[in-house]
Design a protein around this nucleic acid. Structure first.
Lengths: 298, 298
DNA sequence: ACGATTGATAGGGTTTCGCTATGGATCTTC
DNA sequence: GAAGATCCATAGCGAAACCCTATCAATCGT
């Protein structure tokens, strides 16, 4: 059985006429007769009761009409679905990110993406960078956002955005009065730092300080970047934080740029090199375009 | 989209190889590649991720595989259904018959038919002959069993069976001692008769009696042939009944042949000349064959 | 490094497809 | 009531699709 035969038969059945159906199908009448005959021969039963004046459906024809419509509908539905998946507009997308990135700029990125591809089922896993790499490699996630490029050969990285390192101090602190601060001036301060085991940003900051000639004196170590502002406000000292953390600020805290500025903390989109999912590629394409448009968001 | 393309793609997807799939399809490998390419081009997305060493499904391919299987299954199911209907093994069959015929030989005929075509939904309407003709003409029923051929030009009749007219008398009646009885001998008897308005058999008997030179003296008129035996047993007189009524007999009654025998009451299968239902034609064919095999049932 | 295997591509013969022309049958119209 | 119109089926022909064999490019295994 051929879909063309089904389409042709349905046209004849609906028009109750070979001639009209042929017109509708942009076809001449003879091949239409032949195809319907072929279908009837294959099914071993007449589908149409023909007189030279009118065409009526047999019972088998009635059934064939209903079933044929259902088949064509299913075919169309399958085409649409496959096309959507192929275009990366339908499917699943599993992301990995650390809490600070997730609640920072990633949230706005995901919101923008959801507007473009609302049928994609997104899941975000909040995990430490090392776990994210592992998850990418064992195909638990498709994309990760991490600071720094992983060395694994199967992974590709693309720069998502750069975050300047800024100083967070209590408003009562002497440095709060300054317009900008040099990194070396923080050698004698108490520092609130993130856990370097789980935070690439913490390691980045540590490297910057070592390059500036000192090892920060740790008054408090935290796991979640969001807890830093309240600790600063409570007088635990100062902290070097990504610029984006400023969104979680309170009135008690001031943020000041570091000058000369240390290297920015770069956030990368990381994914498998052999990734086949069009959803993933589509997301990456849209994300880079979106992030490129607004390099410096509020 | 073409069913062949779908079949070919499914083979490749299942075998994870063009070469093996081509072998399974009794086809060489190049046209297989081309058909899959054509399908991918039409859907605007790759379905397979090919290296020169192995073939894997893309997400779109996974969806296409599932949908394709469903489509082929539905096609096969449709083919089976249409074929069955075309062979007259599935569908509906509405019959009309009078009570005596229905509870007589028709019951056994329907039982035999049900064994052959158990999927046919049968409905039997018990109605007077005139209503049966009307029901046939307005397509309420497909087939009727009536005595005598209707005159309507749109109807076709085929002899189903012939029923001899026999005499029913109480065992105490003088005629019960006879081996056979002539019709003329019944001129002076009291007769239990069916309603001639609703019974072709009653009219047939009446004609026979008139041909024999008398008009039966009616002691009692009934509508249902089944009530005759008990009335005979109760002494209401004699009755001329179809042979098949003997199955409802009791010990108090004797049946005797009429000699010389009057014309038999012929029962006909009647149906529309333009009937298209294969169920109907199949039933008629099977019924005539079945009835022909056992002309004289017990 | 070389042979074997896999999928893609090229070219040719056969089948299928769709078109025009025509036939047979019925309905409409004058 | 006969002629024309309409409808579906058939016949014959040119074009397109299809499937084949032969070959190429790339990768895997020895």
């Amino acid at each position: 059985m051929d879909l063309r035969q089904v389409r042709y038969f349905i046209a004849v059945a609906e028009e109750r006429s070979f001639t009209l159906a042929a017109r509708r199908l942009n076809l001449s009448q003879p091949p239409l007769s032949q195809h319907v005959q072929a279908l009837e021969a294959e099914l071993g039963t007449p589908l149409l009761y023909r007189t030279s004046r009118k065409v009526e459906l047999t019972q088998a024809g009635e059934a064939m009409l209903l079933r044929g419509r259902a088949i064509l509908q299913q075919v169309k539905s399958a085409e649409d679905e496959v096309r959507s998946i192929g275009a990366g507009m339908v499917g699943t997308l599993d992301l990995g990110a650390t809490g600070s990135i997730l609640r920072g700029r990633l949230a706005e990125l995901l919101a923008a993406y959801r507007q473009v591809a609302p049928l994609v089922k997104m899941t975000v896993y909040e995990q430490a960078p090392a776990r994210q790499i592992a998850a990418l490699l064992n195909r638990t996630t498709n994309i990760s956002l991490i600071r720094g490029v992983p060395t694994e050969r199967d992974l590709t990285s693309k720069l998502a955005w750069r975050e300047e390192v800024v100083l967070a101090v209590p408003r009562t602190h002497p440095l709060a009065k300054r317009k900008r601060v040099a990194l070396g001036e923080l050698a004698s301060e108490d520092h609130v730092v993130l856990d370097p085991d789980s935070s690439d940003f913490a390691r980045h900051v540590q490297t910057c300080c070592v390059d500036a000639g000192f090892l920060p004196k740790v008054s408090q170590q935290v796991v979640d970047a969001q807890s830093i502002p309240s600790l600063i406000a409570a007088g635990f000292g100062v902290a070097l934080v990504p610029q984006s953390i400023a969104r979680f600020t309170t009135a008690d805290i001031a943020f000041r740029p570091i000058r000369p500025s240390p290297p920015a903390a770069d956030v990368f989109l990381v994914f498998r090199q052999d990734e086949t999912s069009m959803v993933v590629h589509n997301f990456i394409k849209l994300a880079l375009r979106y992030l490129g448009q607004r390099k410096k968001p509020g």
